[in-house]
Deep mutational scan, measured.
Amino acid sequence: QRITLKDYAMRFGQTKTAKDLGVYQSAINKAIHAGRKIFLTINADGSVYAEEVKDGEVKPFPS
């Protein structure tokens, strides 16, 4: 399943989102408010992988 960072954070909370991605909650808040195009893939085992689309390139998040 693929979902935006904002939607994932709204569904699970910023604290869990940060923990799942290995970053601080403040980084999640800042990324959402900056309007960054970050998409999360939720794997069947429950693990989460995030990618950011920037300038036409897709890069892992966090980099």
Results as ranks from 00 to 15, higher is better:
Lys19Pro: 00
Arg11Ala: 10
Gly56Phe: 08
Asp55Asn: 13
Ser63Met: 10
Gly46Asn: 06
Thr15Gln: 15
Glu52Pro: 01
Ala27His: 11
Lys19Leu: 13
Lys6Asn: 09
Pro60Phe: 06
Phe39His: 05
Lys54Ile: 15
Phe12Lys: 03
Glu51Trp: 05
Asn29Phe: 11
Phe61Arg: 02
Ser63Asp: 14
Phe39Trp: 14
Thr17His: 01
Phe12Trp: 11
Ala27Ile: 15
Ser26His: 12
Val58Arg: 08
Asp20Phe: 04
Thr15Phe: 11
Thr4Trp: 07
Ser47Met: 07
Phe39Pro: 00
Val48Glu: 00
Lys59Val: 14
Gly13His: 01
Glu57Cys: 12
Val58Phe: 11
Asn43Lys: 11
Gln1Thr: 14
Ser26Gly: 12
Ser47Glu: 08
Val53Ser: 08
Val58Glu: 05
Pro62Ile: 04
Asp55Ser: 08
Ile28Glu: 00
Ala34Asn: 10
Ser26Glu: 12
Gln14Cys: 14
Leu5Gln: 00
Val48Phe: 05
Asp55His: 10
Tyr49His: 11
Gly22Arg: 06
Lys6Ile: 11
Thr17Tyr: 01
Ser47Asn: 07
Lys37Arg: 11
Ile32Thr: 02
Lys37Met: 12
Ala44Trp: 08
Ser26Cys: 15
Ile32Phe: 03
Phe39Gly: 01
Arg36Tyr: 05
Phe39Ala: 03
Thr17Lys: 00
Lys59Cys: 10
Ile32Ser: 02
Ile28Asp: 02
Asn43Gln: 13
Lys19Ile: 11
Gly56Thr: 07
Val48Thr: 05
Ile38Gln: 00
Ser47Arg: 08
Ala27Ser: 11
Pro60His: 07
Val48Leu: 08
Leu40Phe: 03
His33Arg: 13
Ala34Trp: 06
Asn43Asp: 09
Ile28Cys: 01
Lys16His: 05
Leu5Pro: 00
Phe39Asn: 04
Ser26Leu: 07
Pro60Met: 08
Ile38Tyr: 01
Ile38Leu: 02
Ile38Asp: 00
Ile42Lys: 05
Val53Asn: 08
Ser26Ile: 10
Ala50Pro: 02
Tyr24Val: 14
Ala34Val: 08
Asp55Met: 08
Phe39Arg: 03
Glu57Tyr: 11
Asn43Pro: 04
Gly35Lys: 11
Glu52Ser: 03
Asp55Gln: 08
Asp7Pro: 00
Phe12Val: 07
Gly22Gln: 06
Gly13Met: 01
Lys6Glu: 15
Leu40His: 00
Gly46Met: 06
Thr17Asp: 01
Tyr8Gly: 01
Ala9Pro: 00
Gln25Ile: 15
Ala18Ser: 08
Tyr24Ile: 12
Pro60Thr: 07
His33Asn: 15
Asp7Phe: 03
Gln1Ser: 13
Val58Trp: 14
Asn43His: 10
Ser63Glu: 12
Met10His: 13
Pro62Thr: 04
Arg2Met: 09
Gly46Arg: 04
Pro60Cys: 07
Leu40Gln: 00
Thr41His: 07
Asn29Gly: 13
Ala34Ser: 13
Gly13Asp: 02
Ala34Leu: 09
Asn29His: 14
Gly22Pro: 01
Ser47Phe: 10
Lys59Glu: 09
Asp20His: 06
His33Gln: 14
Tyr49Leu: 09
Ser63Leu: 11
Val53Ala: 07
Ser63Phe: 08
Asp7Ser: 05
Gly46Asp: 05
Val23Lys: 02
Thr41Phe: 12
Lys30Cys: 15
